[in-house]
């Protein structure tokens, strides 16, 4: 229920009307689009698959936000840059392996190596971030680490720019993943398949890790009560670093999967996916691991399908230019009507 400030009933009424009309407009747009039959069934299917692929990347990133929030109640706004550094590392690793001819001779090993280095570097960046930018501020008022996070984000962005320039770099092609594949009636590119399959594998592993290992249990304990967790013998600082490290690993994986989809790296590339993954985490219920995965997929599908479904009906040209509008409208609507997200904060780390 959004009626938390009952004295501000006028404001609530306004928000309901606003939200209602946005939803009505969206529904009417979808109706028009479908009625006009602008897109074929195959095209819809392509959009959904693309949305799931993109959503898988958002989900991996959103998990990083949600894990850190679950333990520190802090939004690590530099997480998008951890992702960007993973993507850059993947770019350099892939280029080097390409020049060495490994991408041609042993493409699978090359991919695994690229993935491993990207995840490792992202993990190191995340761990350094915690040690340098956040740990000294533990116990400071909440606003302070938030500002530091923004500072750290800019530092990481412009460090990348200083080293590698502001140009867009094309990613060497993994010819291994060219072509397309059919899963039953659903066709997709091999790259999309690799992205979705890797993301699902990583998320299942994470889930099992959190629920069934000693460290996973310790993470859950720390997220419930740091003092009592310490009384049990848990080194809370170590668990916090571990959490950042896991978030970094996931961001690194997201980085290489993202470049697999879009084939380019850029020093500013972490910003939008980072903010969107944060949106996804809020959408699912920040602090909730399953929520983050769900939120990521939802946002990816909305972003891919939304502009075409909701806007083409109104005859808006190039609706895909407006996909970010849709993504962030969703964030605003969720914050207004369901501030706790889909799943709230019930079971999580």
């Amino acid at each position: 229920m959004p009626v938390r400030r009952s004295r501000l009933n006028f404001v609530n009424l306004f928000l309901w009307v606003l939200g209602g009309s946005i939803l009505a407009l969206a529904a009417f747009g979808a109706f028009l689009t479908i009625q006009q039959g602008r897109l074929s069934g195959d095209q819809w299917q392509t959009l959904i698959v693309a949305g799931i692929a993109l959503g898988s990347v958002y989900a991996l990133l959103a998990l990083g936000y949600t894990l850190v929030y679950g333990i520190l109640f802090m939004i690590n706004f530099a997480h998008g840059e951890v992702f960007m550094w993973g993507a850059f590392t993947a770019y350099f690793a892939a280029t080097a392996l390409n020049n060495a001819g490994m991408m041609a001779s042993n493409p699978i090993l090359a991919f695994v190596l690229v993935l491993a280095t990207a995840m490792l570097v992202s993990m190191l960046v995340a761990v350094m971030l915690e040690r340098i930018a956040y740990r000294p501020l533990r116990g400071a008022p909440r606003l302070v680490p938030l500002i530091t996070a923004i500072g750290a984000s800019l530092t990481l962005q412009y460090t990348a720019r200083g080293f590698y320039g502001s140009g867009v770099r094309a990613y060497p092609d993994f010819t291994l993943f060219d072509g397309s594949i059919a899963l039953g009636p659903v066709g997709m590119t091999v790259k999309q398949f690799v992205v979705i399959a890797s993301a699902i594998t990583i998320m299942v592993l994470l889930y099992l890790f959190i629920n069934n290992t000693r460290t996973g249990r310790a993470m859950r304990a720390v997220s419930e009560d740091k003092d009592v967790a310490a009384m049990m013998g848990i080194n809370v600082d170590r668990i916090i670093v571990t959490t950042f490290a896991i978030g970094g690993l996931l961001a690194g994986a997201a980085g290489i999967l993202y470049t697999l989809l879009f084939n380019q790296v850029h020093f500013f590339m972490g910003f939008l996916p980072g903010i969107k993954a944060f949106t996804a985490a809020v959408l699912g219920g920040i602090g909730n691991v399953i929520g983050a995965a769900l939120g990521g997929l939802t946002l990816g599908i909305l972003e891919s399908l939304g502009p075409n479904l909701l806007l083409t009906g109104y005859g808006i040209p190039a609706p895909n230019q407006l996909k970010d509008v849709i993504a962030f409208s969703v964030l605003v609507l969720v914050l207004i009507f369901r501030p706790a997200g889909f799943l709230g904060r019930k079971e999580n780390v």
Binding site: E224, D225, A230, M231, M232, N235
Partner: peptide, 30 residues
């Protein structure tokens, strides 16, 4: 605190403070 407990000092805190989102068994494991 996490080292004190290894000396053989266990603390059952005020207000119980069990890990409410964990099962009884998991609490004992902790």
């Amino acid at each position: 605190a996490h080292e004190v407990v290894t000396f053989g000092i266990a603390h059952s805190p005020e207000g119980r403070k069990v890990f409410s989102r964990m099962t009884v068994f998991e609490n004992l494991q902790m």
